[in-house]
Amino acid sequence: MDSESHKSTATKLVYMANQIATFFHTQPKDEAVAGVADHINHFWEPRMREQFFAILEQEDNGFDPLVVEAAKHIRKPGPVPA
């Protein structure tokens, strides 16, 4: 249901990650990568990060290069406790 306003969750996640990157682009260089990674680690629920990594594997995933750079510092979610 990817109409003009009703985007898929994947589209939204890419958009959200890029929004975060847009903010950190304006911050001092040395803080930017850690800033994006920390933000996503702090606020994104595991299944969002799960999807994030799945999207990351696709080519033309639409992520801002800063997000891609930050990805290696983003925590891979562990299994959900039963």
Binding site: M1, T9, K12, E45, M48, P77, P81
Partner: peptide, 17 residues
């Protein structure tokens, strides 16, 4: 759990998913 949970908009996205 040591992981953050879903925010309201994320809950709704997850519901649709």
């Amino acid at each position: 759990q040591d992981e953050p949970g879903l925010r309201i908009p994320n809950m709704l996205d997850a519901a649709v998913d």
